[in-house]
Computed example of a mutant assay.
Amino acid sequence: MKSIYLILSSVSLLTLASCSNSSPTDSDLNPVIADKNYPSAFQYKTSKNQVISPYRPYNVIDVKGMKPGHLSRDPSTAKKDKAGKPIPSTAKIFRIPEFKN
């Protein structure tokens, strides 16, 4: 009986919480996005899925599914381990730009 009561009270609290007017913004979910210290990439031609990295060798990077303002990494700037494989966490970070038509 206690388990049913706990389940019903949990469901009712979740229902009330989902009815609130406040919704988290991107900067609430990821505090790194609020930090503006990362350089912005450049739009590649008129594509909204590709950008030019702000780091040498200025590769074109696919950012499909990412929104302007989000952060991404340039895999070509990653350091390599002893076996020669890139270490993704060492790749330089850049910001996705606002896309123009």
Rank of each mutant, 00 (worst) to 15 (best):
E98T: 15
D62G: 00
P39F: 00
Y5N: 05
K82D: 09
K80Q: 04
I33H: 10
F42Q: 15
G84K: 02
I93P: 01
I7F: 13
F94V: 07
S22M: 08
Y44E: 14
K92V: 11
L13P: 05
S20C: 03
R73D: 05
S9V: 15
D62P: 02
T25F: 05
T46M: 10
P57F: 05
P88M: 03
R73I: 05
K45T: 05
L29T: 09
K100F: 13
L13N: 03
Y58M: 10
Y44A: 14
M66T: 09
I87V: 13
V63K: 08
L14W: 08
P88I: 01
N30T: 07
I87K: 12
L71A: 07
K45G: 06
A17E: 02
V51D: 06
A34N: 08
D74V: 04
C19E: 05
Y58K: 08
T77A: 04
R56Y: 15
L14I: 09
N30W: 15
L16S: 04
R56D: 13
N21S: 13
S27V: 06
I61T: 02
E98Y: 15
L16D: 00
P24D: 06
L71E: 10
I52K: 01
T77G: 01
N49L: 06
I96P: 00
S89W: 14
G69T: 05
R56P: 13
S10R: 09
V60D: 02
D26Q: 15
R95A: 02
S27W: 12
F94Q: 00
S27P: 11
K82M: 04
T46F: 15
S18F: 06
P68D: 15
Y44W: 15
D35C: 10
S20I: 04
N101H: 09
N37Y: 03
K2P: 14
P57T: 00
F94H: 06
M66Q: 13
S53M: 00
K45Q: 01
D81Q: 04
K85I: 03
K36H: 05
F42T: 14
P68E: 15
K45C: 00
L71Q: 07
V32R: 12
S27M: 12
S22P: 14
D26F: 15
Q43R: 12
S22I: 15
Y5E: 04
S22Y: 15
